[in-house]
Design a protein around this nucleic acid. Structure first.
Lengths: 343, 343
DNA sequence: GTGAAAGCGCTAACAA
DNA sequence: TTGTTAGCGCTTTCAC
C-alpha cells in the first residue's frame, strides 16, 4: 500500500519479475525454477540467480491452483499439551518428512465443540490437501465420511469403523487386557477400574472395558468408576473403594494414575504397600523414576503405519478406490514398574 | 479422472456450480457465501442451501489468491515430543483461536539441519501467510530478517536480537539466577552446573551462564559441564564432580535433571541426602510426585503475549512499520520441591 | 440487488 | 529450447 514497494524485494516478487530480469518468458522461468521440462542450463543458471537476487518465493497458492493438485497432506491434531499426542505429532512429522511428504497441521483444543472441529476440517479441505491424517478423537466418522471418497483419509491412534477411512491405531482393548492380566497375576481380586466415561475418552473406555471383563473372567470383583475429563474426577470414589477393601486401582491413563497417587499420598496410603496402582500410556518422561506400572503405547508404530498408508493411498489413487479399507491395530508393551506389587 | 465425477458432490464443486444451481451469477454467489456486500436475504438463503446440498467447500487457495491477502498466521514449531514445546504449541493455538486467528503449523525435527528449517520457512511464506510466529531456536535471525519487513514476525520462547523481529520469550537468565539463589540459600558452595552447549541449546546456555555467575558471586565454587543434546551427555562428569565433593547439581533442563537422578540412583547416591539436584522447565506432569526442585517456565504468558503481539501487528499494518520492535521477557516461578535440601 | 469482466500468480499444453 | 495462450477458482470494482 505504501509508496516504494519496489524498493525492498521479497514476497511480492513474481515469476514475471524474475523472468523479466532474466530476459525470458514466464514459462521458461517457471520451468527453470522447478527444474522440470526443457531449458538451457545456462538459462536456468541466470534465472536462478535473478530469483535469488530478488528474493523470490514462489506463491504456493497460485502454483497449486494452476497445477490443480497439492503436494501437502493435512494433519488434524488434538491438543498437544498431552505428551502422548505431542509425541504422536512429532513422530508423524518425522515419518512424513522421511517419506518426502509435506505436512500442514491444524489443531483443535481438547475440549472444543463439534463446530470447531468441522471448521478445522474445512480449513484443511479448503487448501485442497492431497490427503488427510486425523489424530483426534473429537471428529466423528460422520463428519469425515462425506470426503472419504474424494481424498484419502487415515485415522491415527483411534480405531474407526466407517468404511473408506483407513486407520493405524492403538489396540486399546488388548492394552486393557494386558494390564488386567498383570494385575491378576499379582493376585489382586478386588480391583477398582477408573476411566473417563465413554463420551469423554473413547480410548479410555475401551481400555477400561477390556480390563473389567478380563478381571471378571479372572475371578476378580471389579468396582468400575466412570469419571469426567479431569484427571482428578472419580479419584475420591476410587479411594473409597480402596478403603472398602480393594487392593488395586487400575487407571485408564497415566494422568489418572498420577492423580490417584497424589490422592493416595495425601490420604496416607502407601503404594504399593497398601494398594497397587496401574496406568496406561507410558509416555511421561520420568515415569521410570516414579516406577509407574503402566503400558507403553506404540506411538512410533502407529505414526509410521499412518504415514506409510497415506503414502500408498496417494500413489495408488490412479486406479480409483482399488484396495480395501486398511485397519491396523498396534499393541504396546507392558511396563511392570513398582507401583503394582503382589497382594 | 473417472467417469461420473458429477455423481458424488464435494471438493470439486465450485462457486460456479453453486451459482448455477441457485440461478445466480458467480459474483452474487461469492458475496452471499461469505455474507459480505449486497444481496437479497432470500437469494442468500437459496445459495447457502445449494452450497450445503452440493457439499461445497471453498477453495482457499483460489480465494486468497484472488483476494490478495491471507487470513492465516504461520507457526514454525520445534519438535513437539518435548512437553515444553508441546505445551507452548497448545497454548499458542488456544490463544490464537480465542483471538480469531487461524494458525497453520509446520514443524521441524529437533535435530534438523538448516536446510530443513529454510524449507519449512519457505513453505509458510509460499502460502503468503499474514504473519509468522517462530517457536523454534533452530532458525536464525539471519534467515528470518529478510522477510521481517514484509510480514510481521514474532519469536516465541527464545530471545531475539535482530531488529524488526518481535519476541515474547522466557527470561532464561533470570530463571538461572532464581534457581542459583535458591541453591545458595540452601547453603551449597560447591555446585555443578550441567547444561547443553551454547550451540546445542541456547536457552540452556543462558540459564547455565546466569547460574554460574550468580553462584560465583555468592561465593560458591562452580564446575561447569557443557554437554551435547542427549540428556545423558555430561552426566558422568557431573557425578565425578559430586564424588569430588560437590553438594549440588544444577541442571539447565528437567530432562537433564531426570537423567542425573537416574544416574545418581544407579550409583547409590541419595537425593537430596547425598546431593541436591535442580532442573528447569517445570512442565512434566508428575514432577510434583517426584518432588523435583525446578522452575516453572511461563508458557502461558509467552504464548498469550506472542499471539497478542501478532494480532496487534496485523491490525496496525496500515500505518506501515510504525512501532518499535517489541521484546517481552517473562519470568517463571520457582518450584522448591524436595530434590534440593540444605547442605 | 445483481451481473459482467478483469485479473490474482502460476502452470501446462501447444506452437514456434 | 523458448514463447504464446489459456485457464485454475475465486474476488472485486463498476456498471446495470
Amino acid at each position: 500500500m505504501s509508496g516504494s514497494d519496489a524498493g525492498s524485494p521479497g514476497l511480492r516478487v513474481t515469476v514475471s519479475d524474475v523472468a523479466a530480469a532474466a530476459g525470458v518468458s514466464r514459462a521458461t522461468a517457471t520451468r527453470a525454477l522447478k527444474g522440470e521440462g526443457r531449458f538451457a542450463p545456462e538459462t536456468q543458471e541466470r534465472i536462478l540467480a535473478e530469483a535469488e537476487r530478488l528474493g523470490y518465493v514462489r506463491n504456493t497458492m497460485a502454483a497449486e491452483l494452476a497445477a490443480g493438485r497439492t503436494g501437502t497432506v493435512g494433519l488434524m491434531l488434538r491438543d498437544a499439551s498431552n505428551p502422548a499426542y505431542g509425541l504422536l505429532f512429532s513422530r508423524l512429522q518425522d515419518e512424513a518428512h522421511r517419506r518426502g511428504l509435506d505436512l500442514v497441521t491444524v489443531t483443535i483444543g481438547a475440549d472444543e465443540q463439534g463446530a470447531e472441529q468441522v471448521n478445522a476440517l474445512h480449513r484443511l479441505l479448503g487448501m485442497r490437501v492431497a490427503g488427510l491424517i486425523v489424530a483426534t478423537g473429537g471428529i466423528t466418522a460422520a463428519q469425515l465420511e462425506p470426503f472419504a471418497d474424494q481424498v484419502p483419509i487415515v485415522r491415527a491412534g483411534r480405531v474407526e469403523t466407517a468404511e473408506g477411512i483407513h486407520t493405524a491405531h492403538y489396540d486399546d482393548p488388548e492394552h486393557g487386557r494386558m494390564l488386567a492380566s498383570h494385575v491378576l497375576s499379582l493376585g489382586h481380586r478386588r480391583v477398582v477400574v477408573l476411566s473417563g466415561a465413554e463420551d469423554v475418552s473413547f480410548a479410555e473406555h475401551l481400555r477400561a472395558s477390556a480390563m473389567e471383563s478380563t478381571l471378571v473372567e479372572g475371578g476378580a470383583t471389579v468396582t468400575r468408576v466412570s469419571a469426567g475429563a479431569a484427571p482428578t474426577d472419580g479419584v475420591d470414589e476410587a479411594l473409597d473403594a480402596v478403603r472398602d477393601g480393594a487392593t488395586a486401582v487400575m487407571c485408564a491413563s497415566d494422568y489418572r494414575q498420577l492423580a490417584v497417587m497424589r490422592a493416595l499420598r495425601t490420604a496416607g496410603l502407601a503404594v504399593p504397600g497398601d494398594v497397587s496402582v496401574t496406568g496406561c500410556d507410558g509416555i511421561l518422561p520420568g515415569a521410570d523414576l516414579l516406577g509407574l506400572t503402566t503400558l507403553r503405547i506404540p506411538v512410533e508404530a502407529v505414526a509410521a503405519a499412518a504415514v506409510e498408508t497415506m503414502q500408498r493411498l496417494l500413489s495408488s489413487d490412479a486406479d480409483s478406490d482399488s484396495s480395501e479399507t486398511v485397519r491396523q491395530p498396534f499393541g504396546g508393551t507392558l511396563v511392570p514398574g513398582s507401583t503394582a506389587a503382589p497382594v
